[in-house]
Design a binder for these strands. Sequence first.
DNA 1: GTAAAGCCTAGTAACGCAATAGGAAATAGA
DNA 2: TCTATTTCCTATTGCGTTACTAGGCTTTAC
Lengths: 142, 142
Amino acid sequence: MLVSTKGRYALRVMVDLAEHQAAGCIPLKEIAARQGISEKYLENILATLVRANMLSGMRGKGGGYVLTRPPEQYTVGEILRLTEGSLAPVACLDGDCKGCSRSDECPTLDVWKNLDKLINDYLDGVTLDQLVAPNHGYDYVI
Amino acid sequence: MLVSTKGRYALRVMVDLAEHQAAGCIPLKEIAARQGISEKYLENILATLVRANMLSGMRGKGGGYVLTRPPEQYTVGEILRLTEGSLAPVACLDGDCKGCSRSDECPTLDVWKNLDKLINDYLDGVTLDQLVAPNHGYDYVI
DNA sequence: GTAAAGCCTAGTAACGCAATAGGAAATAGA
DNA sequence: TCTATTTCCTATTGCGTTACTAGGCTTTAC
């Protein structure tokens, strides 16, 4: 599996925040309820996004999370690479294993490289605003 | 990780067999040595390929493995789908989880579907003969 | 008959994933 | 200042999958 729950949840949450950005700070509780994800698990995921400055978290009463940029400036690729660690389709292209002793003569390496580029290019071409439902684009603030 | 060692090894072995097909039956021992893969582990992988009729195994002295079709009739996609079970990039598209209760409204589902198609289409477009090293195409039989 | 090969069923150690637990620190409002 | 609400931080745990390993049986050529 290329993308685990962590990455999938992260993406859904980012879309959720984009859809509700007009409402300002959104507390984790609200996102978790809306998305049907355990609050504790979401905490981990949001922490990763905050540390990478994709979100900012406001503590205390009335706090919550907000996007740090407009939705069109996030790509799906960067969100997934961050939360998954890597989107490499095989270990051969991923950090540690890089520089396999057979890479010079490996007949399959090009397939993996092409696949890797295909995946990353596609996901880097999709931005968050493209995933926001049309009817949510202009939330009214109550 | 989309593709594990099982799929990677399977692909390398298939290429190896394609390169040496002129030599007839190739015993597991020889492939394992050439590819630097544990014999016992390779056994499992080859068993899967044989059961799917991608290879045939000849028992007894002088036995070994041969391709059942010409290399240009194998796609990388079918080899990997067989050995990996599935090439779906997310669990949402894979057997059990299919029909997630949120799929009707999921804003990210299209991304996964597109990615899935991209991956499978690419891998189905690459055939085994394209991975065979040029100098191995016409092995001399000794 | 024997050596060389594939076939078959288990078993196991290590790892990563998904989730949980418990508390510390910050903040707004009463 | 007290309290409720919220994020932040560091573990820990159960579970399934991956990557192998073990041992024995069957087939076949010489």
